[in-house]
């Protein structure tokens, strides 16, 4: 086969062009640390990245909901605990008031102590987090418990919102205030009635009502505690999903640096050899040189 000089030059240039283009794509991988730097590098990996990005974003928003629900439930939990302690004190004071040793004045003094504690309970039942009345059901914009005389009435509703915290997983962000506190306020109101009328048997009868108040409170605390427990598990789960997604993403888009470095060296070597070989080919003499 006849080989012409211009063919040799052309092939040499084409080889260099190819090597340089490989070098370009490898050094893109090297500097970005990613093997997919263009959609056309791997169309399927690019499409997978779109769906992985969505999963990561979903996870992020679920985590934000977990944080918000945790805040509401933690505030609710501590309010319920506090109310439980206060109710125990009210009950103790009520037992003192039921004693025959106490004078009418002494009983009235106990009554005002109980009222102070009752007011504290009202304020706890109207607890807010992020400007949101947590025991109001969905009527979150106004205080759910309103006292008039010794009667405390509930103005919220039974609708406690639940939020999505995972695929097909929701959590209720609290308990309706009526379930937790209605029996509490009724019991205290009965007790105060007995104290005000200085009626020992009425006081004793009202103290019996406290057991249902304690049980309602306990049930609410149980629900809140269970949901907090769920959130703790979900937090761990979301964290591990996050790590999993990150790993998956890495597999799809991250360059294997060891491989990239080796490839880079290979191409560099090929480039050097080609340039060296090309140099000597280009300088190769033809008959004209020898003929002089």
């Amino acid at each position: 086969m006849r080989v012409t000089q211009s063919e040799i030059y052309r092939n040499f240039v084409a080889d260099l062009e190819k090597l340089n283009s490989n070098l370009g794509s490898i050094s893109r991988q090297f500097s970005s640390g990613k093997k997919v730097t263009r959609l056309s590098d791997s169309p399927s990996a690019s499409a997978v990245l779109v769906s992985l990005s969505k999963q990561q974003s979903d996870l992020e928003y679920h985590r934000l909901n977990v944080d918000a629900a945790s805040l509401f439930l933690t505030v609710a939990d501590s309010a319920l605990n506090e109310v439980n302690n206060l109710l125990t004190s009210v009950h103790t004071k009520g037992s003192q008031a039921a004693s025959e040793i106490l004078t009418a004045e002494g009983r009235a003094a106990v009554g005002s102590e109980i009222r102070a504690m009752r007011d504290q309970i009202v304020s706890l039942a109207n607890s807010q987090a992020r400007g949101h009345y947590i025991f109001a059901g969905s009527a979150v914009t106004s205080a759910p418990f309103v006292r008039s005389g010794d009667a405390v009435t509930y103005h919220g509703n039974e609708e406690v919102s639940s939020v999505v915290i995972g695929d097909g997983l929701e959590v209720r962000q609290g308990v309706p205030g009526s379930n937790a506190f209605d029996s509490v306020f009724r019991a205290i109101e009965g007790l105060l009635d007995g104290i005000d009328s200085d009626d020992l048997s009425a006081i004793k009868a009202s103290l019996d009502q406290f057991s249902s108040a304690f049980s309602d409170l306990g049930q609410a605390r149980g629900q809140v505690g269970a949901n907090l427990g769920l959130l703790r598990n979900v937090t761990v789960e979301l964290e591990s999903q996050k790590v999993g997604l990150k790993e998956q993403r890495g597999l799809v888009e991250d360059a294997n640096m060891a491989e990239v470095v080796v490839r880079l060296k290979e191409i560099e070597t090929a480039l050097q050899t080609t340039v060296a070989a090309g140099g000597s080919i280009l300088q190769q003499s033809n008959l004209f040189d020898i003929l002089g």
């Binding site: 928003y61 679920h62 909901n65 918000a68 629900a69 992020r130 949101h132 979150v140 919102s161 999505v164």
Partner: peptide, 9 residues
């Protein structure tokens, strides 16, 4: 999704 946690916010 985030709004659903505190819709009045």
């Amino acid at each position: 999704t985030q709004l659903s946690s505190t819709p009045e916010d």
